[in-house]
Design a protein around this nucleic acid. Structure first.
Length: 269
DNA sequence: ATATCCACCTGGCGGC
DNA sequence: TGCCGCCAGGTGGATA
């Protein structure tokens, strides 16, 4: 469930359990995620956890010597559980804490990652990322400037991490619908005004989803999964052929960059 | 530099 | 019930 809002909801859910706790030990059951988990991760012992932050879809667990980077990929989940909870299928990493709890990473498809960033060093995966969508760095002017250089479909540009981070397939579809812009429209054809609408819509949609994740938040450490809390808010994603919720014309579904793309040819034309 | 396609991996679904 | 192909919330990397 790792859209940016889900990652942020995860961060908000785990931070109270991790911050100011000590990391006693790390158990790596499956080292081969998207990349091998570095040896240094499994060798960590008795480290205070200083902070739990987020950059794009990476969670950053800050220790005195450096930072653990966690990416959830397509299927990753984090849970805080009592330390004696037996591991189940696809539970790949446990971080044991001194408060009787553990942080557990479950990732069916193993597209996620656990990496290490030493203090004072950047990380190549973070270095080239674009602005955070929920900060003032993501402006209409920034989006417009990059769009002018690209003739690719706006949906592909919106999902490009160099342009803005955190906009995945669901939110790219949803934001373009709300902005009334065709996903296939060449980015270089967008006006500054359209870029302004789009930046605002992206911001609003992500922020709203994070807020709704707050409901999930309080059950976060339960063993059971969480409901699709924003599912009822979706206008187009997963609704190909169904009537548009605004104009009732059937929604069109195509493939764009090998990703499912749904839009209303009437509203977004 | 951009654009395109592929790769990684497991599981759920619909169709035969 | 089984097998097969397709699909899935991501994104780095190879290629032209």
């Amino acid at each position: 469930m790792p859209e940016l809002p889900e990652v942020e909801v995860s961060r908000l859910g785990i931070e109270p359990h991790l911050k100011n706790a000590r990391l006693l030990q790390v158990i790596v059951r499956h080292q081969q995620l998207r990349w091998p988990i570095p040896e240094i991760i499994s060798q960590l012992r008795d480290q205070p956890i200083l902070a739990v932050q987020r950059r794009a879809k990476y969670l950053l667990v800050q220790l005195p010597a450096g930072t653990i980077l966690i990416h959830l990929g397509m299927s990753g989940h984090l849970k805080v559980l009592p330390q004696d909870t037996p591991a189940q299928k696809h539970d790949h990493v446990d971080w044991l804490l001194d408060n009787g709890k553990l942080l557990r990473l479950n990732d069916t498809r193993r597209f996620g990652a656990v990496l290490w960033q030493a203090n004072g060093e950047g990380h190549e995966l973070l270095d080239s990322l674009g602005p955070e969508p929920l900060t003032d760095d993501f402006t209409a002017e920034h989006l417009f400037a990059l769009c002018q250089k690209r003739k690719a479909a706006i949906k592909l540009v919106l999902m490009d991490n160099h342009v803005v981070v955190g906009v995945g397939n669901i939110y790219a579809n949803e934001a373009l619908f709300k902005a009334r812009i065709l996903p296939t429209k060449p980015a270089c054809e967008l006006t500054l005004a359209q870029c302004a609408v789009l930046t605002n819509v992206v911001r609003k949609t992500l922020a709203q989803a994070i807020e709704q994740g707050g409901t999930t938040l309080k059950d976060f450490s339960r063993a059971d999964g969480q409901p699709g809390y924003f599912k009822q808010e979706l206008f187009v994603y997963g609704r190909g052929q169904q009537p548009c919720l605004v104009c009732e014309h059937p929604l069109t579904e195509i493939r764009l960059g090998q990703r499912s793309t749904v839009f209303c040819a009437h509203c977004q034309g």
